[in-house]
Amino acid sequence: MKRRINIRMSGLGGQGVVTSAHIMAMAASKEDKFAISNPFFGAEKRMAPAESYVRIGPEKIFDRGELVYPDVVMVFHPQVITMGKSYTMPFYSGIKKNGIVIINDDIELLTDEEKEDLAKMNVLVYYVPATKMALDIAGTELSTNMAMIGSVAGLTNVIGMEALDLALQDRFGKKYVASGGTATLDEAIKKKFAKKEMLLQKNLDTIKVAFDQATDYAKSKNYIPAVMS
């Protein structure tokens, strides 16, 4: 990669938004890239707005904190848009020219005004039914974040599947110290699967399907993510 990419993830508490940023950062680290992940939740509670940020680049990254001017905005839940459960209004506030918006849904959610705004900035809007994908493949909506990770990786090629697999094993394969809320969620997702290997495999499968779909989309549209070149 030539240039740094700044990703803002907006979702709801319990969806794994913070975990996604950590996995992306760890995966980047596996590919010897530089990364910083930053969570920014308010109260740790289900369905409350939650945001996290990840910066990935070819050289050492110094700045941290929330991304006021992101290259990519990932929307993990439709309510981020429809109910304004976002830290910024509109949810794409500050997005850079040639940026990308990834939305977890399969129906159109943007108003004409929002579409116009984003078109002016030459922003790509990519819809992916991440929760449906998670239910179909992993059998639980708790894997929604995996489909979101796969989508951003497939669209931008910022990290590869192998690194994501290694990062996933790091995060769920061994003992991991997290906050009380995160630990409870970890327990919840572990209970959904008979074995840890199955959890890892199903989540990886979810990432892969989303990754391939996004790659195919980019190919079919001849889309080259300008944010990174």
Binding site: H22, A25, M26, A35, I36, S37, N38, P39, F40, R64, G65
Partner: peptide, 8 residues
Amino acid sequence: FFVTHARG
């Protein structure tokens, strides 16, 4: 948060 909750 910027440091305590972020990885580096």
